[in-house]
Design a protein around this nucleic acid. Structure first.
Lengths: 207, 207
DNA sequence: TTAACCTTGTGAACTCTTTCACAATTATGA
DNA sequence: TCATAATTGTGAAAGAGTTCACAAGGTTAA
């Protein structure tokens, strides 16, 4: 496959959300011009993004909403369900367990881990919290495909090392730490403080 | 000021974190080569980023850790404190109130809002939760500079409109919704499901 | 059926970002 | 003090990503 940029993937996620909405509102077709307007992009950008994966439109008409939505779902891997484990059932972890958007997109949190003896064995929103000691064994047995890290920063690297050892190739990290993984592992880090820093930069520099 | 790209700002945040760490470990100087190695970038990239804001280094030696850290802090606006209000004290909102990194960087959550009568008036981690009805008045009175949105998606636009009306110019949004703001307002949206979609894309397409 | 209109898909042009490469400058050790 | 080594800062080159512009193909209405 031709190279797909980070920005293109992000925009696909956005198109997907717009299409879901348009579908609900009863729209049958949508043009690149309309999509672009909604997302504040150029029509050419929208067409270029989509053309990386095939020709989904009809000249003179545009794209069929339902069809394009499903195409993008398939490109992003949203037409299947993913088994996800979450490590660290603290403040952030608990919030993520309740985060509806995950399940809506097929990301099903199947396992929870913590290292706190008071939490281990407890039922949290229908899932028994397991001991992080058994991480590698449990991840393998449950055929988990993705892992979300929500442990304190100083424990994150250690936990990630275990996760990698269990053969997991995709990790979403919420710990504010600079984590290292082997090349073949996909790691994305969400750092909420860095998002605020971006805003304070914008404010100070009056962009 | 010359144009500073989104990517540059993100990298500055990362440099800042590395420098904080290096300082703690007792390093006095650091070269662009070393910084680049830690962040998996090229030395030229590091120097180019910094050169946008001035000449902070010493040829033959590198950068003084403490000095560079402070320069970047000043660029990002981390050398002052920011008054932040958080709207929506649900799962995500509560997690954010407890998020240590915010305070560490000078982002102080001063006000909490919700629309749930059972929560309004209650003390949450030392802050009395206020009625979102009084949003505009309270934001103005408390001289809030930034707002974090953690309300359900279907209420987000309405709340943001109020925030904008109160004169706030920087908003960090955690609601999975496509929010519109006037041009002069800086809005960043963190969509955690979109981060997972990025990972599933990577996994499917075996990048 | 036909003419007028609309919209896609895509090379080419353009713009933005990253990397290269090297002069200039400072540090270091004999 | 001087030669050697290290490292910055920055124009120029290379590489990526975005927008332009238009031929090709499809729609619509009379």
């Amino acid at each position: 496959m031709r190279k797909v940029s980070e920005s293109t993937v992000k925009r696909l996620s956005r198109y997907y959300r717009v299409l879901r909405l348009l579908e609900k509102e009863g729209y049958v077709t949508v043009s690149s011009k309309e999509l672009a307007k909604i997302e504040k992009l150029t029509p050419a950008q929208v067409r270029k993004d989509l053309s990386l994966f095939g020709s989904f439109g009809t000249r003179g008409l545009g794209y069929k909403v339902l069809e394009l939505k499903e195409k993008i779902a398939s490109i992003l891997g949203l037409d299947k369900t993913w088994k996800v484990a979450l490590i660290g059932v603290g403040n952030v972890g608990s919030a993520l367990v309740s985060y509806k958007e995950f399940a809506k997109q097929g990301f099903l949190i199947k396992l929870l881990f913590d290292n706190d003896q008071r939490k281990i064995g407890k039922n949290h929103k229908g899932i028994i919290i397991k001991d992080v000691k058994d991480l590698v064994k449990e991840l393998k047995e449950s055929k988990i495909e993705m892992v979300i890290i929500a442990v304190p920063a100083d424990q994150a690297q250690k936990v990630v090392d275990q996760v990698v050892k269990a053969g997991i190739r995709t990790i979403l990290n919420f710990a504010p730490a600079n984590i290292k993984v082997p090349d073949q592992v996909f790691l994305r880090t969400v750092n909420m403080a860095m998002e605020l820093e971006h805003l304070s930069f914008a404010l100070i520099n009056q962009i």
